[in-house]
Design a protein around this nucleic acid. Structure first.
Lengths: 186, 186
DNA sequence: TTATGCATGTAATTAGTTACATGATTAC
DNA sequence: GTAATCATGTAACTAATTACATGCATAA
């Protein structure tokens, strides 16, 4: 059981769904491809944390709907008491920022603009999710209240990222650009 | 050549250093263990992007100091024009936040406090890095200017994370706690 | 004396991505 | 007709973590 498995369980603890369903729901918060998700669901079914049945759909392919079992719920609750690991972020932009002295200004701007549009997309998507949380559920106590917290986490992060991009773009654009310093081999 | 390899090259393009040195420098921005770094450096040396020599030290073990080659610099410059992938963040806290409705309030607070202290540690560490950047280097044009941008990226992110933690803790502590809703199996 | 920091590596395992494979339906 | 969405899976590969392995110096 890795963190992704617990994540999938967490979404299925709210409501049953297919592999495809949970994939779409989890992706804004944890990047994972279907090829990783399907085997994990099958494995959790084998371990009786999940059960499944096929549901026929008209005009769409049939789907295999998973539901969490009592054993799955127990497992999730136990997990909630296990120590929280530090988050892992791998952002090529950090590495490229560190290298910007060796490229031209237009390219530097391009790079940051690319990231900026990513953050705008994210912000919009989180804000639209937030719009679907009713005022009733923004009060403490319900399950959906925690959706609100989680979405807000995404918003805080995307907003900070966007702010940084704008700050950097301001600097890159305002300043007279002097050619990057000639490389002196160390 | 994966992103970590380029990241290592990027640090060695600034100044030569041992595997251990670059590991320490890169870790605040890209989590990687020495067991991943050493083989990548060896591989890049084989591909002549790096060269190395052993340096004797008194009271410390000898170290293998890597320097970037012209070919390595060319490779880095080329990389700067390749498309920027989206960042990848895997944060167990997101999954646990989504599950908070099924645990007790004290545990929920514990979880968020754990993360809060992580962000405080990060903020302090980035701020101390920022303190080492001279005012001269906070102006556009030098290599060290981009250190300043990168550190600021860390600060923006840690600050946003910290803000979120405080916001959540405020809610968890202020509110009368009603037991999490009894689980109705879906 | 026991832990921590410095220093370098390899081996085994797990996690994650890309590619392969199939097939229906719908919108342009 | 051709791209996109829905839907599920496996195979091959790459990336990353954990564990194994060594050894010296210093500080508590």
């Amino acid at each position: 059981m890795n963190t992704l498995s617990y994540g999938l369980l967490a979404f299925l603890a709210r409501e049953p769904g297919s592999g495809y369903d949970v994939m779409l729901k989890i992706q804004p918060f944890w990047q994972a491809k279907h090829s990783q998700i399907y085997p994990l669901l099958a494995q959790m079914e084998e371990n009786e944390l999940l059960s499944s049945h096929w549901v026929k759909q008209c005009d769409k392919p049939d789907k295999k709907v998973y539901s969490i079992t009592d054993s799955g719920i127990r497992k999730l609750k136990e997990w909630m008491y296990k120590p929280l690991p530090d988050p892992v972020t791998r952002d090529e932009l950090s590495m490229k920022t560190f290298c910007m002295w060796m490229t031209d200004r237009d390219n530097a701007i391009d790079i940051v603009e690319t990231r900026k549009s990513y953050f705008i997309r994210r912000l919009e998507s989180f804000q639209s999710m937030q719009g679907k949380v009713t005022e009733e559920h923004k009060k403490f106590g319900t399950r959906e209240f925690y959706d609100h917290l989680l979405i807000q986490k995404g918003i805080f992060n995307a907003a900070a990222g966007l702010e940084w991009c704008n700050w950097v773009l301001g600097i890159l654009r305002e300043c007279d650009y002097s050619e990057p310093p000639a490389l002196v081999k160390p």
